[in-house]
């Protein structure tokens, strides 16, 4: 792979000054869109994403209905202006694949059997991409599901680990993704100690993957705390200033 920049400097710092195990600044908020049943906004470094949830509601189209559980529909989509080169309108193959793995990650924790013959729609809109959009998207989608009052076994949170200049690093940004050796997005249900989304692009040994997973798991616990804080903030306001 071609390298145009040095990704780790002599002090062990990354291109944006972070240590290998350091997350980018994360900010999130629940209940940001008025008309959806639940919504969230997230910023991770330069990545900015809205997520919204509708439902449980009637299944559309009807033939997708399941007699014993809810159907989850998920669309991960990037705005045309979210990337350096304008992304053509419509769904790319990448977006189709990511919609599938996002849906499956959420389906792992939602109590779908509580809502037979219903549908839960999850929409993820990336308005600016700076690496880690699927993981930030899933963190936001999970927050939006909680905001919509959908019962779940856990709040799913996610981040990506990667390998750059031979070093395992946390929460890779766009430059590290482009010029690094590997990108491994991980979403977990941390309370259950389980992985709900896992992908890997690039070469890592089994040992490196293990080390990366451990790094991701710790970070995911931190991210989940931010989700909980965002929900507390949202519902404290609606309850009239009372601490939950």
């Amino acid at each position: 792979m071609k390298r145009v920049v040095k990704l780790i400097d002599e002090n062990g710092r990354r291109v944006d000054g972070r240590r290998p195990d350091e997350l980018r600044p994360i900010r999130m908020e629940a209940g940001v869109l008025e008309k959806s049943d639940g919504s969230a906004y997230i910023e991770v470094g330069g990545t900015r994403i809205y997520a919204a949830v509708f439902g449980p509601r009637e299944v559309h189209p009807k033939h997708l209905e399941l007699p014993d559980r809810a159907v989850i529909n998920c669309r991960y989509h990037m705005a045309s202006f979210s990337v350096d080169e304008r992304k053509p309108l419509g769904m790319t193959r990448r977006e189709i694949e990511l919609s599938k793995v996002l849906r499956e990650a959420l389906e792992s924790v939602v109590f779908v059997e509580e809502f037979p013959r219903m549908m839960i729609d999850v929409f993820v809109e990336v308005i600016q991409a700076d690496g880690g959009t699927r993981t930030a998207g899933i963190t936001a989608a999970s927050l939006a599901l909680a905001d919509a009052g959908i019962p779940m076994a856990d709040l799913v949170a996610a981040t990506a680990v990667g390998k750059v200049d031979g070093i395992i690093v946390l929460d890779i940004n766009e430059i590290e993704d482009k010029y690094g050796q590997a990108d491994m997005p991980v979403a977990m249900a941390p309370r259950l100690g389980s992985i709900v989304l896992l992908q890997l692009n690039g070469m890592m040994t089994v040992e490196e993957i293990s080390a990366g997973l451990e790094m991701a798991e710790n970070a995911i616990k931190t991210i989940q705390q931010s989700q909980i804080d965002a929900l507390r903030k949202r519902y404290r306001v609606e309850a009239g200033g009372e601490e939950l």
């Binding site: 793995v101 499956e104 792992s108 389980s194 993957i209």
Partner: peptide, 30 residues
Amino acid sequence: TSDSTVAAVQKNTPGLMPASLLRQALETGK
């Protein structure tokens, strides 16, 4: 790859995968 480095991973169905079992799976797959 031929030297048993992992080059691609895809969790392709919904459901919980305990982290410990994933490690076992990576070794088994190798």
